[in-house]
């Protein structure tokens, strides 16, 4: 039933858009036409023109996500376990986090060129801070009882790190996975849009340059579909990897 309502709602919205553009209420020059947008998407996929761009955008996303997460986990563990260093660095971290980091894109373009490097760099800065703050929180909130319990079992400092701090931090990383994967994607696309030679962001930029609003919307549609697919993958990974976490719908023995 819900999906029926959803289909009706989507149909109404697209129908109104289509009628509006057909009758001229919505200027096709600015709002495009759903039929043309669909045709553009079909053309991209049937000619295969979109694949290399999509591959580039997704690899940038993946690399930004992987490097940002690794960096965030390492920095979070390190500073979480060295409160003194953290208190020294605190204002710098706050400043770096408060800065609107999208504005770094032009600088990264100068440093790393117009290729994938500058896109990964922007995505990294977006992902890094989300993961970093979550790991920091995770390390701070490790249960002192679990910590002492594990120490009493003879765990060395290294083993504590591996078997207590890391898993505790990872549960926080996973809870922010949806946001960080999304941010990696945003970073890649924005950086492409601000200057690139390939990628879906680049396609949109090109289309905008020749005022082809249908292609702009088609690009947005493709990106949205990709974002949804990534989100579904994250959900799948979560259910596989976080079996140990209590969930409201799970029964327990009593």
């Amino acid at each position: 039933m819900t999906s029926l309502y959803r289909a009706i709602l989507a149909g109404l919205l697209i129908g109104a858009w289509y009628l509006g553009s057909k009758t001229g209420v919505l200027s096709p020059l600015f709002f495009g036409r759903p039929s043309m947008i669909a045709a553009q998407v079909v053309e991209w996929f049937s000619t295969g023109e979109i694949w290399p761009h999509l591959a580039i955008t997704l690899s940038e996303t993946l690399m930004a996500f992987a490097s940002g997460t690794t960096g965030g986990v390492l920095a979070g563990l390190w500073l979480g376990l060295s409160p003194r260093t953290l208190s020294v660095l605190d204002p710098f971290i706050k400043a770096a986090n408060a800065m609107p980091r999208v504005i770094l894109a032009p600088i990264f373009a100068m440093w790393f060129g117009l290729g994938m490097g500058s896109k990964v760099a922007l995505g990294f800065t977006l992902v890094f801070f989300i993961v970093f703050f979550n790991v920091l929180q995770g390390v701070r909130e490790v249960s002192p009882v679990v910590l002492n319990g594990t120490r009493m079992l003879g765990a060395s400092r290294r083993q504590l790190l591996r078997h207590v701090y890391l898993p505790a931090a990872m549960s926080w990383v996973f809870s922010s996975l949806h946001i960080s994967v999304g941010m990696a994607f945003v970073g890649a696309v924005i950086a492409e849009y601000l200057g690139s030679a390939a990628g879906v962001g680049y396609l949109i930029l090109q289309a905008q340059g020749v005022f082809d609003v249908d292609a702009v919307f088609a690009g947005i549609a493709v990106l949205t579909a990709c974002a949804l697919a990534l989100d579904a993958l994250v959900t799948l990974a979560e259910t596989k990897l976080l079996v140990w976490q209590p969930r409201a719908d799970m029964p327990r023995d009593n």
Partner: peptide, 21 residues
Amino acid sequence: GESLMPWRNARDNVAAGLQFA
């Protein structure tokens, strides 16, 4: 309090000390 590692099942919690050694 609860000193078991929540990310390990009962078996691996019990085995932990031996594994650390």
